[in-house]
Simulated assay, not measured.
Amino acid sequence: MGLSFMGKNENQFSHLTAKERDSLSFPARIVKERGLLLGEVLDFGCGFGKDVEILGQQGVNILGYDKHYFPHFPEQKFDTIICFYVLNVLLPEEQALVLMEISALLKPSGKAYFAVRRDLVYEGFRTHKIHQKPTFQTNVVLPFRSIFKNDSCEIYEFQQYNQVPKSYSGCPFCNPESKAELILESAQAYSILDKFPVNPGHALIIPKRHIADYFELSFKEQSSCLFLLNEVKKKIQKRFNPEGFNIGINIGEKAGQTVSHVHIHLIPRYAGDVDDPRGGVRGVIPERKMY
């Protein structure tokens, strides 16, 4: 794998990796048999790295990343990403971060495969039988295409939202252009760069459900959008290095909304981009901007 390994005996998170294996994991066998491990492959959350080791020996061009064992975060993008039994041991906000990270590591033409357990009897914290540490487990259902399911495992196929074929509805945010740059994506929302940016790095955070009014989104959808907003801000800050931001949502025609699908504007601000920036978003009514 070309990465330094922190052994299980010196790692306080060993209880998060289910067990050591001498053979491929079950979902790895499924995706390998179906010929889905194409191009440059990443095993995200690879644990001890056994799947990476065996698949590499079988000729798959694969790297491994694991927060606890192979902690060097990948810098390239991949054609295929596998993420097996990771989401089941994470809290909801951690699951969302994993989905976002994988969406950003995937090439526009690429696909990711998530395997989740289907044999959990109960959810919550339990004491790990071997390590005697509290371990969180939860059932996970993803809004992606299921390509395999039995009593113990389900495998989902993920493509970036703007790469998934859809029946055209006339809404540009339900049918984002495939050439648009997707910044991040979660289960409920996605983010792209604005097609007509006010400033470099102008991004949109968009819920996947088609609805016009932000206040009619469910609390879960609103939370997902705001969580995504926070992570997109980090990406924009690193890439464009702005000196400030404006955040805005247009709700209703009288407030300037021209596309009847909720979208949050994240607008980077730079020194000198306007003569006098004081008042910020109060400038939506220019004559009342100053007070």
Rank of each mutant, 00 (worst) to 15 (best):
T135D: 11
D151K: 15
V116Y: 01
I130F: 14
P165T: 04
P134H: 11
Y161I: 02
D151I: 12
T138Y: 05
F144I: 07
L193E: 11
S178M: 08
A187E: 13
V140K: 01
I192V: 15
K133T: 07
K129T: 13
K133M: 10
D194G: 10
I147T: 12
E177C: 08
S152F: 05
R118V: 05
P134F: 03
V116M: 01
K166W: 07
V141L: 14
L193P: 10
T135A: 12
N150M: 02
Y190E: 13
P176K: 01
K149Q: 10
F173T: 00
R117M: 04
S169D: 06
S186Q: 08
V141M: 12
Y113T: 05
Q159V: 08
F158P: 00
A189F: 06
A187Y: 07
G170R: 01
I155A: 04
L193G: 09
F148P: 01
Y113P: 02
S191T: 10
N175R: 09
L184S: 06
G124P: 00
Q137A: 13
A189R: 07
D119W: 07
Y168N: 06
L184T: 06
Q188S: 14
G124E: 01
V116T: 03
G124H: 00
R117V: 05
K129Y: 12
E154P: 03
F114V: 03
S186C: 14
S191N: 09
K166N: 07
I147W: 05
Y161T: 04
L120Q: 01
N162E: 04
E177R: 12
S169P: 02
A187Q: 14
K149M: 06
G124S: 00
Q159N: 09
L182P: 04
Q188V: 07
V141K: 12
Y113Q: 03
S152P: 05
E181N: 11
E154H: 06
